[in-house]
Amino acid sequence: MSLEVVKNEKLTRKDFTSDQDVRWCPGCGDYAILATLQNVLPQLGIPREKYAFISGIGCSSRFPYYMETYGFHTIHGRAPAIATGLKAHRPDLSVWVITGDGDALSIGGNHLIHALRRNVDLKIILFNNRIYGLTKGQYSPTSEYGKKTKSTPYGSVDYPLNPTALALAAEATFVARTHDTDIKHMTEVLKAAGEHKGSAFVEIYQNCVIFNDNAFTQVSDKQTRDDLSIKLADGKPLIFGKELNKGIKLNQGSMEVVSFEADSPPDDLMVHHATKDDSVYAHLLARMEEIPGLPVPLGVFRAIQKSTYDEMVQAQVQDAIEKTGPGDMEKLLNSGDTWIVENKA
């Protein structure tokens, strides 16, 4: 542990690396996310002591132990609630929630949606590996239907949940997706999340080498990923493909893929805008994976501004102090109907 106060301007990844041995399985996608975030934080211009990492339970939730910041490894599913209390009291902090698909979407589903709807200024990073890793391989709320695991030898009969669609339905002001094998993309997305004011929700496709290996080949396989995924860029048309010769357009309200000669896309392709006032377009992005043949979108689906919970809680306190003056304890104790009992002696 460093004894020196680290000056912000010279912060590097090393300053965010704690003295604890990292105990994830060799080859786990979590290593890449840890390294990326340790690289991103120095770029945000926030003093190190102002960062707080709050996690729940699961493999991903061990994350705070490896960060040389304030950290709190809490209980299963409750990190967004604990982070909400911290941020409400301390709007000056940059509060990050590290969670997984079981932690955030199963046991902690309620806290996740309420933190998002309140627009608490939290960065919620969901490591989605579509499996319970720490408990050794049971299916999770994002596991595909029919998945065979230790707890579902005949295949799961649960329909999975779509994390980005859920976040949008919960009124998140920032929703993004990235994956653990593309460091550059992950860096851009995490930086954008860190810079967003309000609740930022980032789903990271994260590979579990032990219990659910190769779950995300659609975005990770070098041969096919450019044809099976699409990177969103603000103000740019929805174009993808190894040859950049495919695009997406709306046809009678449905999204469909159109092919064209590279460099001459048609005019009617959909254009990406993450800042649209309404969330209809972002919902379409979140639902693309339901339509066969459409690529998986990666990047920032939605990023809008509205007052944050912590800001408004603080403003009400300030407002009350300005309007009625700072609390006067004597006055409060003596309020209401009072009477005096005289000393008769």
């Binding site: 707080a52 709190f72 209390g85 902090l93």
Partner: peptide
Amino acid sequence: KTLQCEDEIAAIGAAIGAAFG
């Protein structure tokens, strides 16, 4: 500051988070 939370667990969680702060 008073927070009306989504449930009892969130309420104690928020109180613990605030105490951490």
